[in-house]
Amino acid sequence: MGIFSSIKDAIFGKKAAAAEPAAPSPVGTALDAATSAMAAAAAAPAPIGEVDVEAILSAEAAKSGQDLNWRTSIVDLMKLLGIDSSLANRKELAQELGYTGALDGSAEMNIWLHKAVMRELAANGGKVPADLTD
């Protein structure tokens, strides 16, 4: 699994985890079996719709209590999601996303990475404000 997949799973997984219903209590009647089957069908993962990336990250930032600038910093975004933000991981992420500049951890690379991650999240079903992708 690549670094971008870890980022996407960390964000999109929070939506899926919040939507999981409680497990039904076991009862032996046919009606309960039918009800359980319908509940299971309803709980089956739906195709990923639009995930409000900004809302999820804002809530996560508030919950963490850390002062992280995830809106502009790839390092802070990765830290917020509990992903190693080392230069080695950012280099790997840059290669995954097709960065062609120097893999030196420069401001140029990091800004490009942040915007590329936001664009990829949007391309994979995330609702991302335009100012985070430009």
Score class of each variant (00 low, 15 high):
87 L>H: 10
98 G>T: 02
8 K>W: 10
75 V>W: 03
114 H>N: 15
77 L>C: 09
131 D>Y: 15
97 L>R: 01
127 K>T: 09
114 H>K: 15
132 L>W: 10
17 A>G: 10
42 A>V: 10
34 A>I: 14
88 A>H: 10
76 D>K: 04
72 T>I: 11
22 A>M: 09
61 A>R: 10
98 G>N: 03
29 T>Q: 06
38 M>V: 13
49 G>C: 06
66 Q>R: 15
113 L>R: 01
42 A>Q: 12
98 G>K: 04
56 I>T: 07
90 R>L: 04
3 I>Y: 02
33 A>S: 12
40 A>I: 03
63 K>H: 10
45 P>L: 10
42 A>L: 12
25 S>C: 09
131 D>K: 15
39 A>Q: 14
131 D>V: 13
6 S>K: 14
66 Q>E: 15
36 S>W: 00
79 K>L: 11
61 A>F: 06
61 A>Y: 06
50 E>A: 15
55 A>W: 06
69 N>I: 09
89 N>V: 02
36 S>L: 07
73 S>T: 06
127 K>I: 07
57 L>R: 03
79 K>T: 08
36 S>C: 10
109 M>T: 01
91 K>A: 08
39 A>G: 07
118 M>W: 02
85 S>M: 01
19 A>T: 09
64 S>V: 07
52 D>S: 12
133 T>S: 12
36 S>M: 08
23 A>W: 08
102 A>G: 11
8 K>F: 10
65 G>H: 05
23 A>C: 09
42 A>E: 12
73 S>P: 07
54 E>G: 04
1 M>Q: 11
123 A>K: 11
106 S>R: 00
127 K>E: 08
110 N>D: 09
107 A>Q: 12
125 G>Q: 04
54 E>V: 07
109 M>Q: 13
70 W>D: 04
39 A>Y: 03
34 A>W: 11
7 I>S: 00
104 D>H: 07
73 S>C: 05
31 L>Q: 12
9 D>A: 14
89 N>P: 04
21 P>G: 10
33 A>Q: 14
25 S>A: 15
96 E>C: 02
85 S>D: 14
32 D>M: 13
78 M>S: 01
115 K>R: 15
122 A>G: 01
35 T>L: 12
4 F>G: 04
72 T>K: 12
67 D>I: 05
101 G>L: 03
132 L>N: 07
22 A>Q: 08
129 P>G: 05
80 L>V: 04
68 L>N: 06
44 A>D: 07
15 K>E: 15
41 A>L: 14
56 I>A: 05
124 N>A: 10
46 A>D: 12
122 A>F: 05
76 D>V: 02
45 P>M: 09
64 S>T: 10
76 D>I: 05
50 E>M: 13
115 K>I: 04
52 D>E: 13
116 A>P: 05
23 A>M: 12
89 N>A: 05
62 A>L: 13
47 P>W: 10
71 R>P: 03
3 I>F: 00
113 L>G: 00
104 D>W: 03
61 A>P: 04
107 A>S: 13
71 R>S: 11
54 E>C: 08
22 A>Y: 03
127 K>R: 13
79 K>C: 05
10 A>M: 06
79 K>I: 07
73 S>N: 11
20 E>Q: 14
104 D>P: 03
94 A>L: 07
83 I>D: 00
8 K>H: 12
78 M>F: 01
24 P>D: 07
